[in-house]
Design a binder for these strands. Structure first.
Lengths: 220, 220
DNA sequence: TGCTTTTTGGATTGTCAACACCAAAACCGT
DNA sequence: ACGGTTTTGGTGTTGACAATCCAAAAAGCA
């Protein structure tokens, strides 16, 4: 109907951001993500975010329709940071040594954080699943992507013949992710990395027992 | 200092409840527990609890100092209901068949709930760990008790000689609880029991592979 | 330079939820 | 039946927090 020239945009016209605008928006998301990770979503007020990001309240509402929209942006950000950031590492899960390196990285990381916050993705999912259906779906997608990463590594292990015939890399990937999520939850609640160490070690032992190298006894 | 007769009570004098009072208090706790399980802790307002329990607002504050105190009572209630209620079942985890029965029970239970809510204990812990240190400690204790229950079953399996020498029931118990928690979290976020089924099956396969019956291939 | 759009500041509003208060009713042991 | 205690109802207060509004400053663009 309108004689509009230049790039026509879709129905949900995303107001184009200048570089400065994009930076401000990102500053808000990062501040919100950190606060929500450290204190939980519901304890994080927009006033907290406003202060941490050093913006005015109208800026938050200029870039996000409401708190839910900001939450979704935080989920996207954490998905990219955590899952995306791990994908190179996950590709190396095609050997037992690769799995061990991954384990060591995760344990060291939790130690560094003082066992606080748990998994950024899992914690968001746990807190939002029953309260925010859209957020739940976002987190579900993030977890599927994570699982895919693990699966690819394990399939590579199977393809190179290190994994025995009967073993199903897909099921192992699901179990590995579940065990990791649970272990991070226990670690966060108990403020102790022991559950994480034991759980990952046990899962790796299980996978090792399915390799052609054969089963090994549990390490002390 | 005071000349008090009758039963002297401790410093934190718990006002003795009459039968009616105890019933009202319990009604409040149960209503709060259900709401917090279905909607999350922070989405549950005391007004919601008031209505669900059919009490007046002053009654809630008569029995609980504040919302945190009610939350702690809910944790205690869920611990007793979930962990306490499972202890008989956990005692039967001394055989692979016992483990399978436990798995089937958990999967059926999740199906019944439409994969909503996840683990009552784990969800409370996840939501409260960073916001409420006292609640975190309560949940941590509940999880240790749960882990103990599993450990006892697996120790029985070891004692009766079904579990191989090298296997460590204690570490297996930690892993089993972590895997269960993570699987329930995935199930809750993805609204699908598949992760729960796969994870528990895989853990049971791992334990089975450590029995004198010897390892078996993964079941489809 | 002038025009439009984006970005920003800050004050304000309205809602909602935790919690306090007070007085009445029911209950309990004696 | 009586005095003290527990239980209950309804209402009021306060503070916090999400969300809105009105412009003004800055930035992009011709």
């Amino acid at each position: 109907m309108s004689t509009r020239r230049s790039k026509p945009r879709g129905s949900a016209a995303p107001p184009r951001l200048t570089r400065k605008g994009a930076e401000t928006r990102e500053r808000i998301v990062i501040a919100a993500a950190e606060l929500m990770f450290e204190e939980g979503v519901s304890s994080t007020t927009l006033e907290d975010v406003r202060e941490a990001a050093a913006v005015s309240s109208s800026q938050i509402y200029h870039y996000f329709a409401d708190k839910d929209a900001l939450i979704r942006a935080v989920i996207a950000y954490q998905t990219q940071r955590v899952v995306g950031g791990q994908e190179p590492l996950l590709a190396k899960l095609d050997t037992i040594d690769g799995l061990r390196a991954w384990r060591d990285f995760l344990v060291a990381h939790e130690r560094l954080l003082g066992c606080r916050g748990g998994c950024p993705i899992g914690s968001l999912g746990g807190e939002l699943a029953e309260a925010n259906p859209v957020a739940r779906a976002d987190v579900a997608a993030a977890l599927l992507r994570w699982e895919s990463g693990i699966r690819l590594g394990l399939f590579a292990m199977a393809g190179s013949g290190r994994l025995r015939e009967g073993a199903d890399p897909s099921r192992l990937a699901t179990t590995t992710l579940a065990a990791l999520q649970g272990a991070l939850l226990l670690t966060k609640i108990q403020r102790d990395t022991t559950p994480l160490e034991i759980t990952l070690d046990t899962i790796i032992e299980h996978i090792a027992s399915l390799t052609n190298g054969g089963p090994r006894t549990q390490t002390e």
